[in-house]
Nucleic acid binder design. Structure first.
Lengths: 341, 341
DNA sequence: GTAGTTTTCGAAAACGTTTTCGATACTTTA
DNA sequence: TAAAGTATCGAAAACGTTTTCGAAAACTAC
């Protein structure tokens, strides 16, 4: 019950390993007759090349690594889906690792993937990441590399992002158009670029519409959880009872906000309007249905892999590669939570 | 900028490759002095063994494959999480593939993983799977293999499951205890064992409580979606307006049911009580909060990997391995949707 | 029949590691 | 001092594939 090798086929056919290998790979310098003999035998024995040997010889594994903060997350699992689908279409497999939002773990995962010699790496930064040494090392070693969503602007590599600032601007402008005068913002942690950008979009939208920015109306999540949503909703009501709109970093937290408002009987959207971000599935089943910003997560995965593939192919042919940045479109999904009364 | 190899270290140190290899792997037959020299140089050059060569030589890749119906799914993403975590703890990486609930794709993925020569495979069957040839082939080739959740009873391999029948029985008994007299069941597709078992549990609970089973009250999902939940809820109301309880195959569908009831103003739990299955996150944020059966998904992932590891270790030492089945506990989570009035 | 061309094949090196086994050199013991 | 034992090292084979390059055979044309 041992694995079939080229050697065994060669021996039973009385020819050389070289010829067997060539026959299987359609080299022109093998006669039709021997090719057929080889193919027939290989099929009947169910020969599959030993990928360990192929890897060693060709120096590639047709495997890529993916590092994300967490798998159990509506946005990321959709990205994973896109990456896996596109990778498979191109004959690549995907190894997935989690950083659990820890910088230390993220560094370890990068090392792990490098030691496994994956052909390329796709990554979304953890919230803790404010140091790019491990990323720079990746670039220095010329390992094809793509970042998506949570990126570092300081690293020169391909990126797939949305325009967080613009999207946030539009979300807040949407609230203003619906009549909100005093808008709070529950923002993400301090490090991630997209949390910063969404905050900046919030601020800009206020300014453009002649609403004075008030830093007291900004609440900062540490863990970006449902519970934090409830907590900050409570604080908002206590500290600023006249708030009439809330822009929340992501739907999960926004759902926490809605849950609290439901509990204490605050009417959404009549008293306060709420808009989230990312279009999690649950936002369309909660009461009231949550308005949000649609983020093309699956497409983000697909594009990330495409960029990586381009870079991997360039590397294989020793061509130089210019990193690219792809910016995907977002759009406001108006649902019940921002309806005009 | 080439990769460092044993050969290079050996040459700069003027010793043999053998000795370098042994020094790095703490063989006893290398002197303290040379060991230190090797270790120092290896560290300063950031030597990492070429895993392709190691794989070829040792015939293992320290990589396992995972095939699941879909990544974007609360239950499966939690299982993934458990598997990845436990695998990493033991020095294994995980390649994830999706079957998209298609038998054909599932077979292809199995072949792919075999050709990649992963050390083992963990899998949950697709809904279409009613044929085990590809699984049997896996067993025949003696590839360590574990099934979880959606299993085939005909295959002799390790399994991690819950007692779906018992859990369903308890869920329906819970409805009955809360006063329900006429209980509908929205069941899963015809093939998967767990859909069958949950149906059987439903039937048994009725019988034990002297309620006559009525096949008209059973609705069968094809795709197990939110939309199907809404659809069947509508049918139930139309065809059996006196139904006062619904047991639903999984929370996603149950949430669809609740959504329809909310829309047309049917009060849950006053008029109809609803219980789901699996404890998806959204079930605790929807209105009313959904009662459900808690399924230890993360733990299922952990246990699956543990069983696989055991089998892989046995194989490595050429010991025989007896497949085991682990049955995990579930429990009823009582929330608003089954509250007594 | 010879020179040249084309077709078909295989030897061998290479990828980088692990491990067996034998060979030194050095130390201990009687 | 010789024999036995121990510590240290390295040659070489093996894992299975890919690819280069040269050789042999077959065929073409004159």
């Amino acid at each position: 019950m041992k694995d079939i090798t080229l050697k065994q086929i060669a021996e039973t056919l009385g020819i050389s390993i070289t010829t067997v290998s060539k026959a299987l790979k359609n080299y022109p310098d093998v006669s039709a007759k021997t090719r057929k003999a080889v193919l027939d035998l290989a099929n009947s024995l169910q020969y599959t090349p030993n990928s360990f040997a192929v890897n060693l010889r060709t120096k590639e594994s047709r495997t890529i690594g993916l590092i994300i903060p967490e798998v159990v997350h509506h946005f990321f699992s959709n990205v994973i889906n896109g990456i896996i689908a596109e990778a498979e279409k191109n004959g690549y497999l995907v190894i997935i690792l989690q950083s659990n939002e820890s910088l230390e773990l993220e560094k370890k995962q990068v090392e792990l993937l490098m030691s496994k010699r994956v052909d390329g790496i796709i990554m979304s930064l953890s919230n803790e990441s404010n140091d790019d040494d491990h990323i720079k090392e990746l670039i220095r070693r010329e390992i094809p590399f793509v970042m998506f969503d949570k990126i570092s602007k300081l690293v020169n590599c391909s990126k797939v992002i949305i325009n967080d600032q613009k999207a946030a601007y539009n979300a807040v402008a949407h609230l203003i158009n619906k009549g909100c005068k005093k808008i709070a913002h529950i923002r993400g942690p301090v490090n991630p670029q997209n949390a910063i950008d969404r905050f900046l979009g919030y601020k800009k939208a206020l300014e453009k519409h002649d609403i004075v920015y008030n830093s007291k109306l900004v609440y900062t999540c540490d863990n970006v959880t449902f519970e934090e949503g409830k907590l900050f909703a409570e604080q908002i009501i206590k500290e600023h009872p006249d708030v009439d709109g809330v822009f929340v970093i992501t739907d999960l937290v926004a759902v926490g906000v809605l849950d609290y408002f439901n509990e204490i009987g605050i009417k959404v959207p009549q008293q306060i309007k709420v808009i989230g971000f990312s279009n999690w599935f649950m936002s369309q089943v909660i009461t009231p249905k949550l308005s949000t910003v649609d983020q093309p997560s699956y497409e983000m995965g697909v594009q990330s892999f495409c960029l990586l593939l381009e870079e991997m192919n360039c590397k294989k042919e020793s061509l130089s590669f210019q990193p690219k940045t792809i910016e995907l479109e977002t759009k406001i999904l108006e649902r019940e939570s921002t309806l005009e009364k």
